[in-house]
Design a protein around this nucleic acid. Sequence first.
DNA 1: TCAAAAGTGTTCCTGGTACACCCATGG
DNA 2: CCATGGGTGTACCAGGAACACTTTTGA
Lengths: 219, 219
Amino acid sequence: MRATNDAGYDAPIGLTADPVVFTLLDGALCVLLARRLEEPQRGMFALPGGFVGTSESPEQTAERKLREKTGVGSVHLEQLRTYADPSRDPRGWLPSIAYMALVRPEILPASPPAHRDASWHPLAALPPLALDHAGIVDDGLWRLRARVADKSWFVSKGAGLLPEPFTLRQAQRLYEALRGERVDAANFRRDVLATGLLSDTGEQRSEGPGRPGRLYRRT
Amino acid sequence: MRATNDAGYDAPIGLTADPVVFTLLDGALCVLLARRLEEPQRGMFALPGGFVGTSESPEQTAERKLREKTGVGSVHLEQLRTYADPSRDPRGWLPSIAYMALVRPEILPASPPAHRDASWHPLAALPPLALDHAGIVDDGLWRLRARVADKSWFVSKGAGLLPEPFTLRQAQRLYEALRGERVDAANFRRDVLATGLLSDTGEQRSEGPGRPGRLYRRT
DNA sequence: TCAAAAGTGTTCCTGGTACACCCATGG
DNA sequence: CCATGGGTGTACCAGGAACACTTTTGA
C-alpha cells in the first residue's frame, strides 16, 4: 500500500500507536496482548494498538485502541519511542509510536471484546509476536525496570497495582517481581516510607503465620 | 493539506525528522538552527530537519537534512521523542521524530548552504522558533543534561567535542558548561580517569601561567 | 619568588546494604 | 513455646564532596 499527499509526495500510509501494558499476575511480570483480526499476520498475537485518527493525539489513540481491543481503560501511558523503519510493516511505510504502562491485572475484564483473546502473557513465555512487536516489548521492559529503580516512581505509579489498603509485605513482593531480585525487608520499609507517599491507616491485617502487618494507602 | 492511502483512509501528510544539535562555543551551550526557505513561517529559525523519504529510516533523514541545510555531517544521533499532535503544524497532520546530538563547533562549515543562515545560537538567547521547535529544544536540553550526568557517557561522547589531544582542564571546562555548575578539579580528574576511557599521551601542554597539564586522548 | 594551575592524598559525610534483635501472631 | 513474619536499631562499606598539600610552570 502507498499514500500520497496533495502535493503529490509519498506519505506514510498511516500512523499507529502501540501500548505496551505490563502487570503482575501470580508473581510473574506479564504483558497485555491481543490477537490480530486483520491482515497481515491475522490470528497472531500483537500489542493492542492501531491507527491514529486524523484529529486525535497518539496518546489518545493508544488509550482508545486499548479499550476497544482489550476493554482496559483509563491508564497512564508514557511515550517509549518511535519505530519508523520503512520495512517494519509489510503493508507499507507505517511508523508506530510505542507507549508503556503498568496496571493492575483486574483491569482486564473477564469478558473482553470478542475473538481477540485479549490476555496477559508472562514475559518468560511470550508467543510469537506480529511485526516488530517483540522488540518493542523488550524496550518497554527496559524502560519499566529503569522507572522502578526510582523508589518514588514505584510508590506513586507502581504501587497502583496493589489493592488498597496493602501491607508493606505486598508492596515488597511487587517490587521484587518488577526488579527481578530480592531486597532486604527492613531497608525496603525504610526507603518506601521515606518517600512520604504512603499513609498509615492504623489498621492491621494478618496474612498466614507471623505478626500482622500495618495497612497503608497511597496519599 | 491532506493525504490518503490506497484504502481511502486519511494518512499523515508526511513524516519529519528534526535533529537538535548542541555544541559548546566560547563557553556557551548552543544549538544549531537554520532559517526556513519554505512556507509556513518562511525566514524563521527552525531545527534543520525535514521530510523523511519513503525508503530511508528517520535517523538517515535527520542526518541527511542536517548535511543539506547546514553542511554538518556524520554525527551520532539519539532518538529523543516524537511530536505528533495533529495541530502542531499548520500544513496538516505532520508528526516529527526528534533526535539529539552533541558535536564540536568546527563541524559547521564556514560557508554553509546558501540563504539559510545555518548557525549556532546560545540557549540563553534563542530567536523565536518555528512551530513547536522551542519545546523540542527544551526536551533535547533536558536529555543532554541527563546524559552528561553519567561520567562514562561524558568521556565517550561529550569529550568528542574537544580537539585531541586535550588537557583535563579543557575537559573540565566542557563538563562544567554542559552541567551548568562548577566541580572540584581533583575529583573530576579522579572520576574521569577511573572510567578507563582516556589514555595518557605522555606529552604536556602549557596554557597560560601554572604547571602544564598532561595531554590525553579518548581510547 | 610569587601566582596560578597540575596533580596527589586524606578527611568527612551520606546513602545504601547487611544484619542483629525485639515484637506479635498462628499453630 | 516455637516458627514466622513485622518492625526497629545499628554497624559497616563505598562513593562522592571538600580540602590540604606538593609540584611545576610563567611572569
